[in-house]
Design a protein around this nucleic acid. Structure first.
Lengths: 150, 150
DNA sequence: TTTACTGCAAAGGGTTTGCATGAGG
DNA sequence: CCTCATGCAAACCCTTTGCAGTAAA
């Protein structure tokens, strides 16, 4: 989670202009942990910028990605945007469709990255590690239903 | 890599009809290691089925995915299709855009999966592990260029 | 003042859908 | 035979692009 001055500095370093819209979009993504979609980001900045269109959001997300601040995560229907650039695991619930960062396994991802670099001769730039399944809440709901079906 | 009778059996088990088109598409994906796109699959079956359209391929890929034979891998511009359903690492070259399975790291992915299940309370169904960077060929070309620029 | 960004509208392109014909079981 | 798959075309929708007005530096 970056502070506003840090965001400004990172953007200026890339020679792009820092506008209020860009700051709002950057904060909406960087202060999130739910890997928002473009639509969700739009909802979150609409109060402050009612006239902002999706084109501006797409454009800004491209700037943020090229600045190394965020990562695009393409899914079947649309992309989500990742604010956590450290090696980690994403948990994608196929029931409620929420996406969250796992709070375990970061060390294993780093070890995997080192193994790929040293043994596969592949120069790693970044990675995406997604586990799909049932989040704790949906998993227990599923077990309840299996025990006592309608 | 599955044999044709195995593919037939897996499809019949799902109550779907086995047509020559579906077999051709299934073999084109399952006997591949390059994670083909829909366009590439189209090219590979066009010789035998000149009139086949993309709609048929999309439909069949959906059947194969729901049968657990393949996995869709959404990328920025389009999806690719994965024939290796075992836990493993995908290497995505950001230079030549090839996607290949890593021949190391499977054990680490399995260990990661176990850790996620036991410590994050997340019931894993499947996973996608992608490392982005430069494949051995493109990495050495990059180093050459850095050493002796034009 | 200069350059680049915003907002609006239209286009682009991968994917899905509807329907008539044709084939699988 | 009945049901479902194929092939064709059109629709869908996320994303990109072009352009005129506007704001950052």
């Amino acid at each position: 989670m970056l502070t506003q001055p840090e965001i400004v500095e990172r953007l200026r370093k890339w020679g792009v202009r820092v506008t209020p819209q860009r700051l709002a979009i950057a904060e909406a993504v960087l202060n999130s942990t739910d890997h928002p979609t473009v639509q969700q980001i739009h909802e979150r900045v609409r109060d402050h910028f009612p006239s902002m269109t999706l084109a501006t959001i797409y454009s800004t997300l491209g700037v943020l990605e090229r600045s190394g601040l965020i990562q695009e995560l393409p899914f079947e229907k649309m992309s989500r945007y990742e604010a956590n650039m450290e090696p980690h695991v994403n948990l994608v619930c196929i029931q409620c469709e929420n996406v969250m960062d796992a709070d375990v396994g970061q060390d294993v991802v780093v070890r995997l990255k080192n193994r790929i670099s040293s043994q596969a001769g592949f120069e790693v730039a970044w990675q995406r590690v997604d586990f799909y399944g049932w989040c704790p809440r949906c998993a227990s709901a599923k077990r309840q239903e299996q025990t006592a079906p309608v």
